[in-house]
Design a protein around this nucleic acid. Structure first.
Lengths: 258, 258
DNA sequence: GTAGTTCGGTGCGGTAGCGCACCCTGCCTA
DNA sequence: TAGGCAGGGTGCGCTACCGCACCGAACTAC
């Protein structure tokens, strides 16, 4: 297991080493393509806060998370930041590589420690240029990412910190097994682009309502249903659209070999 | 000249009928591809406020604006709205079609009357699937659109109405010839996702500063330089990135025939 | 243990933007 | 020429959120 040490093992998932199939994009590829790609994947571990790329960096790899969560952030000239979108095991980090730009004016940071499989840029582009399943899958994923960004813009304009926090927690939960999130209020504030105190207040309300429980960087979601009710429509819009674009059948990997 | 009647001729541009070459994406294509595509284009005219597609509609065409401006809006359940991005003669409306989703949870509305060339969805997909210049050009354009959306999210979070209005005016100017914009404050408010009064106030300040002049739906930009200074960094970030991804040489169309 | 640091709670004044209400002006149409 | 109405201006109270300051509790290192 390559470089799989530098923090807590990320999750109660018992597996010693994550399988590429834990990533939904890799999982839905036809077996033939999996056989071609999987040998070229490298497992990497990312501790919390690891920067995968900086704004403007030329990307050398794309990353398929299995049990890590990556935030795409924009950092302003004055240092303030805002999360543009989130990528977990449903997606891939580094779309700019195959979209042709090779870089992007944003930063990718791990928001939850864990593993990802990385693929060398050139390898991916070779595969992409075969113009088959991989191209179409990645483009559909990119469209779902576009939806998420658009909704982030809407949410930033119209919804309260309370609602946005609910949405953020849901996005995190969807990408984790279990209902525990390791994240300080300070960091959540950076991602939402609001004050730390604002998050404290919103989180306090949720705790009083019995929806979550937290202390010193550990958040436990107690009532996911309430969370969805308290969230704005943005969460559901993105969820539905992603499901439409990338239907994922958990038990696949074997049956989808056209 | 097909259906080119129903309002003012949009601009002081003297040409009787706009050329496909006025659209930057069409203009930078190699001559060989232009010869193949141009005969399949249909010129259409859009009056102000025309809805090109609704949220969830299956797209039947893509549109290459020549002298119209199209807003991509998200409309919330309660009717409030926010602009996600803008498309003018630098781009194309309907990326969801070739990205594979066929529809998108947003609405496309003309923000400035004018013309566009439309291409049937299937024709575009055929061209796209030849996997040549068109595919790569459209993907790079899509990446620039992603940049714009991301920046809109950041701008919505961190910048004042004043700054956002400046940015909005610059985006409009870049897509128009001349410095006159026909748009009521009410409509601008819908796009920015703020109150009409907020726009009145911001526009009042700009007028007092001598940067713009307006009355009853006509805005004239007097001092573009000041406008750029008063705007937030978001405008410049998107402009630079778009230029990087899609360098456009105005006088081309003939020389780029590889 | 003790000291330093991280994390979170709280209070307070300031302000940008909201919702609402109302008004004026100029244009269009009957 | 009168009315209607779209476009815009202004005022007022309210709320969400900000910036700042300060504090205490919990964890970490020595």
């Amino acid at each position: 297991m390559p470089e799989t040490r530098s923090g807590k093992p990320a999750a109660k998932c018992a597996s010693s080493s994550p399988s590429p199939l834990q990533n939904h994009l890799l999982a839905v590829l036809p077996k033939k393509i999996q056989d071609r790609i999987f040998p070229q994947l490298e497992l990497v571990y990312f501790p919390l806060g690891k920067v995968l790329y900086e704004s403007g960096d030329t990307l050398r790899h794309v990353y398929f998370p299995t049990d890590t969560i990556v935030s795409l952030l924009y950092v302003m000239e004055n240092g303030a930041s805002a999360e543009i979108s989130v990528v977990g095991n449903e997606g891939v980090v580094g779309v700019a590589l195959f979209m042709g730009g090779e870089s992007t004016p944003s930063r990718a940071v791990t928001q939850s420690a864990g593993h990802a499989y990385r693929l060398a840029g050139q390898k991916l582009k070779d595969e992409f240029n075969l113009h088959g399943e991989v191209l179409h899958l990645l483009l559909r994923y990119t469209q779902s990412l576009i939806t998420q960004m658009a909704q982030t813009a809407v949410c930033n304009r119209h919804h309260s910190i309370d609602q946005q926090l609910c949405r953020w927690l849901l996005l995190a939960m969807d990408r984790l097994q279990g209902s525990e999130i390791n994240m300080t209020q300070e960091l959540i504030a950076n991602m939402l682009g609001v004050r730390r105190e604002g998050v404290t207040e919103a989180a306090g309300k949720l705790q009083k309502l019995g929806v979550i429980n937290y202390n010193r960087g550990h958040i436990t979601v107690l009532d996911r249903f309430r969370l969805e009710q308290l969230s704005c429509e943005c969460y559901e819009v993105v969820r539905r659209e992603t499901e439409r674009l990338l239907p994922y059948v958990p038990d696949s990997g074997g049956e989808k070999n056209r």
